[in-house]
Design a protein around this nucleic acid. Structure first.
Lengths: 210, 210
DNA sequence: ACTTTTGTTAACCAAACGGTTAAACCAATT
DNA sequence: AATTGGTTTAACCGTTTGGTTAACAAAAGT
């Protein structure tokens, strides 16, 4: 194994270990020693490859959005009706969350700790207009045109996100309350894609005028 | 001011300061010195009145449920249809959350950190059967009787909680995304009680058979 | 072969942290 | 006014934490 490959390998091992520990314990709960242990490496190596705890954290935090942001952007900036986009969002986001169920808690915790970082890293860098504004406008348009029931577009959007994301944030509570194991939780989430979509459809579609 | 009243006063000042700091920063982020500063008292007094950081935290954590639990219990164990109980829940919980918007993030963070504490403090002590099981059964019954649309009762319940609680957990993100200030957020939440109820009603009530 | 560069480690360091102590303070009792 | 006992404080202590250092190991270059 030559040098550059050991380098990248060790680098990545550290980043992976950091990801695991930061996502599990949060920035304040995470310990550099724990990350070193998780990687099976000496603690000094963390500082050899990365400046300090904050930079390591920042990489993990930004990575948490890397899969999500482009997907979301293409869905909402692309073509399709509100209901079609909602379905695509559910498919994409729920699929991602089932793969990485503890991402939302991590993200919310860290945005809560420092909202400015979130703003600086994602909203400042976003191409053009505020990301969801266009979609909210589309919702308003479809309401005006009688395609969907009239309500506050923001409310609709919060409902969709809440139903999608909340179970993952409250997972420990939910599993304790209903004595659900990880397998049962995953199954419940898998069937929710259709369940949520049907729920929304009924709540926003107007009865057909025959 | 006599002695016993200074005692309780100082005790409570400390607890209030601890509440503020723990809810803002979480257990791991909170510093005993910050609590002392917030109370305008010497740090040693925290240990004079309370054993250590953990006991102080535990009081704050348990208090976070003290208003919520009895309300919820009386609503769901009392009489009324699923829709009526849902309305009462929305009224009670949303009202509480508007008063204390940062409670959910605190509670979720700390349950995530130590799910066993939540289990030990609230589920172990609960009177009789698992708290939400009875309500889930009632939902199933009403579905069987054709009063509401058939779906997974757990899904319905997660949807209700998600729509209610999620905006408070994601508040910093939401406010950054939509450039909402605290006043606008509160107004949005105030109108959501009716909005969510209507949303649910449409999603679960069967069309009247005339 | 040997020199240089890169990777890895154990030992160490200063700051921050939760918690303790011993002395000072102060209101009530005598 | 002297004593008492709960209250408050500044100074201190041991441990943990993020981060550094100096020596060592292992490749890479010559």
């Amino acid at each position: 194994m030559d040098k550059s490959s050991t380098e990248t390998s060790t680098r990545e091992h550290i980043l992976e270990a950091a990801r695991k520990v930061f996502i599990r314990d949060g920035f304040h709960g995470a310990r550099m020693q724990d990350i070193a242990n998780a990687a099976g490496l000496n603690k000094a190596l963390l500082h050899y490859y990365y400046k300090n705890k904050e930079t390591l954290f920042e990489l993990v935090f930004n990575d948490a959005f890397s899969e999500f942001i482009p997907k979301i952007h293409s869905i909402f900036m692309g073509p399709g009706s509100v209901l079609e986009k909602t379905e695509a969002y559910l498919e994409a986001h729920l699929g991602l969350l089932i793969k990485k169920p503890d991402l939302p808690m991590f993200v919310m915790t860290e945005i809560h700790r420092d909202p400015e970082r979130f703003f600086a890293n994602f909203l400042g860098r976003m191409p053009g207009e505020p990301p969801f504004e266009r979609f909210l406008q589309q919702i308003a348009d479809e309401m005006r045109d009688g395609k969907i029931r009239t309500m506050n577009p923001r409310d609709l959007w919060i409902n969709v996100m809440g139903m999608t994301i909340f179970p993952f944030i409250s997972r420990p509570m939910l599993q304790k309350l209903t004595l659900m194991n990880d397998r049962e939780f995953k199954d419940l989430m898998l069937q929710r894609k259709n369940s949520i979509l049907e729920f929304i459809r009924l709540a926003i579609l107007l009865p057909e005028k025959n």
